[in-house]
Every structure is written in structure tokens, then in C-alpha cells.
């Protein structure tokens, strides 16, 4: 019996080691570094500075600003992406729509094309005034141009629009397959009962999708909260720090300014947020209950 348990332990050991090495250890290590003055000047010979890094973060208002930015980024992206994906899934789910597989194939392309490369492409598209968006597309549609270097609002519009482009297909695909799994008979019966299209949507479609919507919302919330690349590539957190989120700011503090101890402090704060989010996800979705 004990031998068997020990044997099973060997199968699970690698993942435990990897988890400890790549998650627990770094977080503890960065907690330690966050109480020092480690930086470019003191990379090997750093010293204990107490709460100095945390005092900087909280005293000068950075924390609230970054929290606000992270929330704008997460909620702004999520609401538009989910709305778009849901609307398209509903459109594609109409049984009398022709050419649905062609549209489906085209609409998932943004998801299929590697995201980081897409961002580099979008970065070029948004450059003001030479990028195609500002030179051609927006004037053609009689819309004002976007300048993310000077206007915070423009920067957010650019970020969220680009993020929508990157992610709406995921939501479309998940919602579409959820819609497809609703039994046709439910609608037939409702139609016999005289329910109009709006009533059918409210009474059948939405309740059937409740679980999927909740799951997708919660997990995507965490994903977007952590999503690093769009901001890093497109605005770099600018103008100023007006579009910086926690993880982008931490990354830049470390690798652009070599402010390692401050970056570590930001990582610690960001990790606390993520752990709280993770616990909420696990509690709410009960995702692990489906496994065990």
C-alpha cells in the first residue's frame, strides 16, 4: 500500500517541482527583493531598505492610478469582446443564414493568426499619421484620427479596439458551439406556444448559456487582467503612465529601467490580486468539481 502511494507520488512529483520552482519560489524571492534596493547599480550588492518600495508605490498615487488603468483595460476589453462575440454567434446561429461556414472561417482568422505578430502589425497600422488606419481607413469613414501618443482617450480606444480584433473570435466560437448545443426542440415547442423571437431569446437562449457566459467571463477577466502584450507593444503604457497596468509597469520597471526591487514590489502586489481573482474563479465556476 505504502509502496503504491510512493510510486504514484513519482508521477505527480515533476509537476510539483516545476510549480515550486516557477511559481512559489519566484514569488517568495520577489517578495524578498522588494524589501531591498536591488537595481542596475546594486545588482549583486544590494541591501535591505524595508518598506521603501511599497511606500513609493502607495504614497505617490501610482497604485490607485494603475489599479484604475487595469480595471479600465480589463472591463473595457471584456465587455466589448464578449458583446461582439455573442452577437456574431447569434447571427451565425440563424438556421436560414447562407454561407455560414465561409463567414465562420474568415472570422476566426484573427484568432488563428499569432497574436504577438498581429500586435506588431497593428502597431504599424496605428502610427500617427503614417499608419494605414490614420492615413486611409479613418478618414475614409469620416472618423477622427487616433493619436495614442498624446491623448489618453485615443490610447484606450486604440488598445481596446485592437484587443477586440484579437479576441472576439474566441468568444464567438465558444458561444456559437454553446448555442449549437441547445436542442432545436426547445425552440420548436416555444414557437408552438406562441413565443416571439425576443421571448425565445430571453427564455431559452440566455438561460441555456448562463453557465458558459459565467465561465467565459470569469476566466477571460483573469486573462485580460494579465494580458501584457497589447499595452506593451501598442502604447508602452503611454501617454505617461496613463495606460499602464500592473504587469506592464512591473515589466518595464525591470527591463527598461532596471529598477528590479521596485518591479519586484509591483509583482508582489499584482500576484496578490491574481491569487484573489483565482480563488474567486475557483469558487464561482466550480471548475475543479467537474474534474474530481
Amino acid at each position: 500500500m505504502d509502496k503504491e502511494k510512493l510510486y504514484s507520488f513519482f508521477y505527480i512529483l515533476p509537476i510539483i517541482l516545476v510549480t515550486l520552482l516557477l511559481f512559489i519560489f519566484p514569488v517568495i524571492y520577489s517578495l524578498y527583493i522588494s524589501f531591498t534596493n536591488m537595481g542596475l547599480l546594486h545588482f549583486f550588492h544590494y541591501s535591505y531598505v524595508g518598506l521603501r518600495n511599497y511606500i513609493i508605490i502607495f504614497k505617490y498615487g501610482y497604485f490607485l492610478q494603475l489599479l484604475e488603468n487595469t480595471i479600465i483595460w480589463t472591463v473595457g476589453s471584456l465587455v466589448t469582446m464578449m458583446g461582439l462575440g455573442f452577437a456574431l454567434a447569434l447571427i451565425l446561429n440563424q438556421s436560414d443564414l447562407k454561407g455560414r461556414s465561409i463567414f465562420y472561417a474568415i472570422l476566426i482568422l484573427p484568432w488563428a493568426f499569432p497574436g504577438f505578430i498581429s500586435l506588431l502589425i497593428w502597431q504599424g497600422l496605428w502610427v500617427d499619421p503614417y499608419g494605414m488606419m490614420n492615413k486611409l481607413i479613418l478618414p475614409m469613414l469620416h472618423l477622427p484620427t487616433i493619436n495614442s501618443l498624446t491623448s489618453t482617450t485615443d490610447a484606450w480606444v486604440e488598445l481596446i479596439l485592437t484587443n477586440d480584433w484579437l479576441s472576439f473570435p474566441y468568444f464567438m466560437v465558444v458561444f456559437y458551439s454553446a448555442l449549437q448545443s441547445i436542442p432545436r426542440e426547445l425552440y420548436d415547442i416555444a414557437e408552438l406556444d406562441g413565443a416571439n423571437i425576443f421571448a425565445r431569446f430571453m427564455r431559452i437562449t440566455l438561460p441555456s448559456l448562463k453557465k458558459t457566459i459565467a465561465f467565459v467571463f470569469i476566466t477571460s477577466f483573469v486573462f485580460t487582467w494579465n494580458n501584457f502584450y497589447p499595452i506593451y507593444v501598442l502604447t508602452g503604457g503611454g501617454p505617461g503612465i496613463s495606460t499602464e497596468t500592473f504587469i506592464v509597469y512591473a515589466y518595464q520597471e525591470a527591463f527598461s529601467y532596471s529598477n528590479f526591487s521596485l518591479a519586484a514590489a509591483w509583482s508582489v502586489i499584482s500576484s496578490i490580486f491574481v491569487i484573489v481573482l483565482a480563488i474567486i474563479v475557483i469558487k464561482y465556476t466550480r471548475i475543479l468539481d467537474t474534474y474530481f
Binding site: L22, F23, F25, I33, F228, A250, Y251, S267, S270, V274
Partner: peptide, 23 residues
């Protein structure tokens, strides 16, 4: 154990890049 390792998936390496680099 599953819950524990599941939480790790909430930390993409972009989020842990700084501590990973330091370590």
C-alpha cells in the same frame, strides 16, 4: 493538489517575468 497547480495557470510567464528573471 489540483487546486494548487490550477492557481499557477493564473500566472502566465508575462506576469511572473520579473521574479523569474531575478531568480
Amino acid at each position: 493538489l489540483a487546486t494548487f497547480i490550477y492557481i499557477v495557470t493564473f500566472f502566465p510567464y508575462t506576469a511572473t517575468a520579473v521574479p523569474l528573471y531575478l531568480l
